[in-house]
């Protein structure tokens, strides 16, 4: 028996919006730790890892580990039927082939439930070891989103370089080229407005902008994004989900032939 009650239902709505364009079908794993997902995009260039810890739910019952295969577009459609202030409860029976999403409005005078058939998906779970990154940059998520959007009107790929000077995003296209540098800036009114650069070694990598733009769909989940870079590893863009966990996007670089 699985029963997860999330008071801040809008979080789940935002999580689905953040993933549904990148990943079509995915297995949600439920265990004592929490509600999690790991999935790749269809071309296996990007990977998303989600964790919503059990402590973040008002009620969390998961009698045994359960994997539920779902089409994220369909889940997103169902969650669009929930109001932003609704409480969302996810229910499933052990060994069953359906999941139920229940929505309660704040006044508790409207209760909706939607039952969805689960899918049997081949799960390809990758082991992601802890790594030391050459550079870790925390910046306002809206700023990162703006940069990716602006640069994609000029080019298809971006070179992200971190030096002592800051983090530089560069692109080139038919009309010309563009460089945006964000310097470390900790003299801000609120900590979430800061740009903080931790650099052990300078790093410069090339990425496809369309994936980065897709990651920025998670912007509403967190005011900051943490970008980790190493020359031998995929980029990680992490959006922390307050009191609950995270959504992390991994992106393999483009390498000179």
């Amino acid at each position: 028996m699985l029963e997860l009650r999330l008071v801040q239902g809008s979080l789940l709505k935002k999580v689905l919006e953040a993933m549904k364009d990148l990943v079509t079908d995915a297995n949600f794993d439920c265990s004592a730790t929490g509600f999690s997902l790991q999935a790749m995009d269809s071309s296996h260039v990007a990977l998303v890892a989600l964790l919503l810890r059990s402590e973040g739910f008002e009620h969390y019952r998961c009698d045994r580990n359960i994997t539920m295969g779902m089409n994220l577009n369909n889940v997103s459609k169902l969650l669009k039927c929930a109001g932003n202030d609704d409480i969302i409860t996810i229910k499933a029976d052990d060994g069953g082939d359906t999941v139920t999403f229940m929505f309660e409005n704040p006044k508790q005078d409207k209760i909706s439930d939607f039952e969805m058939k689960l899918m049997d998906l081949d799960s390809e779970h990758l082991g992601i070891p802890d790594a030391e990154y050459h550079a870790i940059v925390r910046m306002p998520s809206l700023e990162f989103s703006r940069i990716c959007k602006d640069l994609s009107s000029i080019g298809d790929t971006v070179v992200i370089s971190v030096t002592k000077e800051g983090i530089k995003f560069s692109t080139r296209g038919d009309i010309g080229n563009a460089n945006i540098v964000c310097r470390q800036n900790t003299t801000v009114d609120k900590p979430e407005e800061a740009t903080v650069i931790q650099m052990n070694e300078a790093v410069s990598l090339t990425f496809a902008l369309r994936y980065l733009n897709s990651f920025t769909k998670a912007t509403s989940l967190s005011e900051t994004v943490t970008i980790s870079l190493s020359s031998e590893l995929p980029l990680v863009a992490e959006y922390k989900i307050a009191d609950m966990g995270y959504i992390k996007f991994y992106l393999a670089p483009k390498i000179e032939d």
Partner: peptide
């Protein structure tokens, strides 16, 4: 000319 790497070239299946 740039080649797009895949995630599986960095992380292995478990």
């Amino acid at each position: 000319q740039c080649i797009q790497k895949r995630i599986s070239e960095y992380f292995s299946r478990v």
